[in-house]
Amino acid sequence: MSTISENSVVARVQGGGGLSALAATLQSALLQARAKLFDLLPLIVALVTLLGIWELACRGAGSSLPPPSRVVTDTWELIIDPFFDNGGVDKGLFWHLAASLKRVAVGFTLSAITGIALGVLIGQSSLAFRGLDPIFQVLRTVPPLAWLPISLAAFRQADPSAIFVIFITSIWPIILNTAVGVRQIPQDYRNVARVLRLSPLEFFFRIMLPSSVPFIFTGLKIGIGLSWLAIVAAEMLIGGVGIGFFIWDAWNSSLMSEIILALVYVGLVGFLLDRVITLIGNRIAGRKVG
């Protein structure tokens, strides 16, 4: 029975030409889309509910904050054209975000390299650990913006100062997680390395790095989140092009809708940064990092 019906399907596909095949692909695509939609349903419901509450709460005439409908109408120009450039700081949101991301890229790369190196050092050497760990533990609690005056004084320029703030904010979780990762390398792996007589360099690349990759990437994820937090705050103070300054500028002009739009972008970009680091981590480790 089943063979007959299968045969007839095959016959129809062959006989009906591409049309029925197309219909079949379309149908499966539709099914997939429906499954995807079903996955996203709780999120959509939550979003609509939150926006609805916000709309209702801020609808009144005397409300100090705009409702979401006003945010969209107020900032429609900014939303549809993120790429305009009227010179100075009068630029589209894309350019502000790009400027901030560039600072984060430089600062975070520096802190990743330095952080992993220092983490390996204090993870591997108990002498270095005893000397440096207490210092790191104290320094890591210093709030990002507290570093800004010092870095402004040292660099006397806005951009390097902002980059330094990112560097010094994001380095601590990278150092500490890398150190934990290095210290948890099982003695068995070290014994394997000793029996094989791996050189220190071989040990580093063949055992230490792969073994501590999940820990390192946990540090990098926390680090990139902190950098993104720090850059917005730092840019508010140093000015120039950047999403932080955009928010500060909007505040000074009482453009609440623009601030809210910028916040949405800040949140989304922060989320994307986190995803990107996770993805790279999974790719490198060849397994789930978290």
């Binding site: 068995d188 394997v192 073994s211």
Partner: peptide, 10 residues
């Protein structure tokens, strides 16, 4: 040959 195999998991 170690008791718990100690193969490198990656």
């Amino acid at each position: 040959v170690f008791q718990n195999h100690s193969l490198l998991p990656w």
